[in-house]
Design a protein around this nucleic acid. Structure first.
Length: 555
RNA sequence: UGACCCAUGGUGUAAUCGGUAACACUACGGUUUUUGGUAUCGUCAUUCUAGGUUCGAGUCCUAGUGGGUCAACCA
């Protein structure tokens, strides 16, 4: 077969193929994923991770993992470890290429001195407010600092003093000398080094001055010989600065290319806001299954293949976008349908007695683990005269087109027999508490040639060996698709009070006792579930990842 | 009242020297089905607006309109 299907390239692939054609960097492709270890990764980061790793893979290149740890204030080793775990979970490997911007502090310091010696950087002792004031506004040019014309020698001595700890935090900064009237605010003599007498998670107290993002990121790219530095659109205005440093430092010319980040309905991607949800106990932690963090998404049961599929389907452009949460769920269902083990779980049990099945006896029936994948095999499930069915699968007064059990109706019990309603019992308030049916022995699953028809198929569990489980069902964490886009309202006002529903009354077939840590299940006719870390010996807990598509309840 | 970026269905993307709108998800409607799942078939767009160039424009030109981003000693 030919590869006729002409795949269309996204704009970054076009740039790369053009570079390849021109033998730029000898055809070498090297990308990087550069998180700051100050919080957990979220599903928005997944786009950057997939893009960087996939594009390198596609063109035979490499991808570095680099921690952008230039601000010691909120950076922690704990975050480093979690970030690595998340990237691995997503399915990517950086081999031994694990780097830290802090590894380059010495080099960066030398770069700063080089800039000073070229007369392109100066020490400014204005206050932060004064610097901000002199910066002007996007529509008005800024003013030169009174310290701008100090001599190279003065600057060099003073910068060394900064480094030696002679000054207090905030007393002085090092600034690049560019253009205070540039229409690009980032070119108005940006601060490139600040004083912070703070311990760093890796360099401890070695340094008391730390480079700013603009004086660390591009330089780190360059040091690592990164060919294509892919980042999100908000860094667009930093690109001229990125290029300016490379030019004046005369270092390897990495190229920054920006793409639009992914926004997902009902999800929040801001680390600060995510932190607020945790701190205010609105969620149980960074890994709450309703969170957009990768640890939350993982605990919820979304498979990594599904996340990668989502990113692939979302594509890559420079447009603003808002992805429907449904696309994520569709990807999850597609993956899970093929790999989830089918089990029967009754969420809201209603007792059903089979009048003509010998009391006290039982038999073993075969159940396919996954009809989509025969290689997953089958298992035995027990059947007896007393079972539980789903409460909503029985109705005294059924609506039209009700394929379930009701007076006069006949249905099939999945993997078992066809049964017909005979009677029911109610409690004092008139609630149905038990249904009585008769079964047809000749309709046993797999060997039914009775000719008896039953439109509906019900899932069930055997009273004799069913085990109680807890089910946690989730809805969106917010009631508004874009909770943080309202200028007049705080995003917390949109927290969905019904985003978590805990059901401790569910009954499961006993096979769930041996559920694995990352084993996905489909609870028949319900949805996809995964065992939660809160599970205990006598009470297993399951998270609902996503429901099955439901063609009945919608109507 | 600056600079830069973006503009194709409900959503996200495609249409590579201009050649008559494609794919996926959703929604709706069939078929199949021992999951109202899966699978499968079908239906849903005056390409932001107005002019212009051309035999022909989503693609080119002009002028608008709308949206986004930028003024942290954060990244």
């Amino acid at each position: 077969m030919s590869t006729e299907k002409e795949e269309s390239l996204n704009f970054i692939e076009e740039i790369i193929e053009e570079d390849l054609k021109n033998k730029k960097h000898e055809g070498r492709i090297h990308t990087r994923f550069p998180p700051e270890p100050n919080g957990r990764l979220h599903i928005g980061h997944a786009k950057a991770i997939c893009l960087n790793f996939e594009i390198a893979k596609k063109y035979g290149g490499k991808t570095n993992l680099r921690f952008d740890d230039t601000n010691p204030t909120n950076e922690k080793t704990e975050f480093v470890d979690n970030i690595k775990k998340d990237i691995k979970w997503l399915g990517y490997n950086w081999d031994d290429r694990e780097y830290y911007a802090s590894d380059y502090f010495d080099t960066l310091y030398d770069y700063a001195k080089k800039l000073i010696s070229k007369g392109l950087a100066y020490v400014d002792e204005s206050t932060a407010d004064e610097i901000s004031e002199m910066k002007g506004t996007p529509t008005e040019p800024g003013k030169n600092s009174p310290y701008r014309e100090r001599t190279i020698e003065e600057n060099m001595v003073d910068f060394e003093k900064m480094r030696n700890g002679d000054y207090a935090d905030g007393a002085k900064v090092l600034r690049a000398k560019i253009d205070m009237s540039s229409p690009n605010m980032h070119m108005r003599d940006p601060v490139i080094y600040r004083i912070k007498h703070e311990d760093h998670h890796r360099t401890a107290d070695k340094w008391c001055i730390y480079p700013m993002y603009d004086f660390a990121h591009g330089q780190s790219d360059s040091i690592e010989n990164i060919t294509h530095s892919l980042c999100s659109l908000e860094f667009r205005h930093h690109r001229p600065l990125y290029d300016w440093f490379i030019e004046h430092l005369e270092i390897f010319p990495s190229r920054q290319i920006e793409f639009s980040r992914m926004n997902v309905e009902y999800m929040i991607m801001s680390k600060r806001k995510l932190m607020k949800l945790v701190e205010n106990d609105i969620v149980s932690g960074w890994d709450d299954p309703r969170m957009s963090t990768l640890s939350g998404v993982r605990r919820r049961g979304y498979p990594p293949e599904g996340i990668r599929m989502l990113i692939e389907k979302v594509g890559l452009t420079k447009r603003e976008n808002l992805i429907e949460i449904n696309l994520l769920n569709a990807c999850a269902r597609e993956v899970l349908n093929k790999k989830a083990t089918r089990v029967m779980v009754v969420e809201s049990p209603l007792k059903l007695t089979i009048s003509n099945y010998p009391e006290g006896s039982s038999e073993l029936l075969k159940s396919l683990n996954n009809p989509e994948d025969e290689t997953m095999g089958e298992r035995d499930i027990s059947f007896g005269n007393e079972i539980f069915i789903e409460r909503e699968d029985f109705a005294l007064d059924p609506p039209k087109k009700y394929f379930r059990l009701a007076p006069g109706k006949t249905v099939r019990l999945k993997n078992a027999y066809i049964i017909t309603y005979e009677d029911h019992k109610t409690d004092a308030e008139g609630n149905v508490i038990e249904v009585i049916c008769k079964y047809y022995p000749e309709t046993k699953s797999g060997s039914d040639n009775s000719g008896i028809k039953a439109k509906g198929v019900l899932h069930w569990v055997n009273c004799a060996d069913a085990i109680p489980i807890e089910i946690r069902s989730y809805d969106t964490l917010f009631t508004d698709p874009t909770p943080d886009s309202h200028e007049d309202k705080d995003f917390l006002e949109f927290v969905n009070p019904d985003s978590l529903v805990v059901n401790t009354k569910a009954m499961s077939e006993p096979s769930l006792k041996s559920a694995g840590e990352s084993e996905h299940f489909q609870f028949f006719r319900k949805g996809y579930y995964i065992k939660d870390q809160d599970s205990k010996e006598g009470m297993l807990v399951f998270n609902r990842t996503v429901t099955l598509k439901d063609g009945f309840n919608k109507k």
